[in-house]
């Protein structure tokens, strides 16, 4: 996790036209390790991860493949 994180979350500032993949690139997170991508709790399809999508105050959550029961 980047410096200044609390637990598993952190605040980040980004430019208006940033995509989810840009965020991954910035934090050196390999694309193929990220499976579950939620923006404000809603799943973002892989093809939507290339386009600018963010608005002020959004919450982005990333997970590798996870499952349980």
């Amino acid at each position: 996790m980047p410096e200044g994180s609390v637990g598993n979350s952190t605040f980040i500032e980004i430019l208006a036209n940033t995509s989810i993949h840009d965020v991954l690139l910035r934090y050196e997170i390999p694309k193929d390790t990220v499976h579950l991508v939620l923006l404000n709790g809603i799943y973002i399809e892989p093809e939507e991860r290339e386009t600018p999508i963010f608005s002020e105050g959004d919450v982005l959550a990333l997970w590798p493949p996870v499952a349980g029961g």
Binding site: N8, H35, L36, L38, G41, I42, Y43, V59, A61, W63, P64, P65, V66, A67, G68, G69
Partner: peptide, 25 residues
């Protein structure tokens, strides 16, 4: 070779879902 059964479940257990399910409301 599967990320869930080889890594996710042994490392985090089913409990990995706590934050996921909370996030999806």
């Amino acid at each position: 070779e599967n990320a869930v059964t080889a890594e996710g479940l042994p490392q985090m257990g089913t409990q990995v879902l706590m934050n996921v399910i909370n996030e999806v409301g």
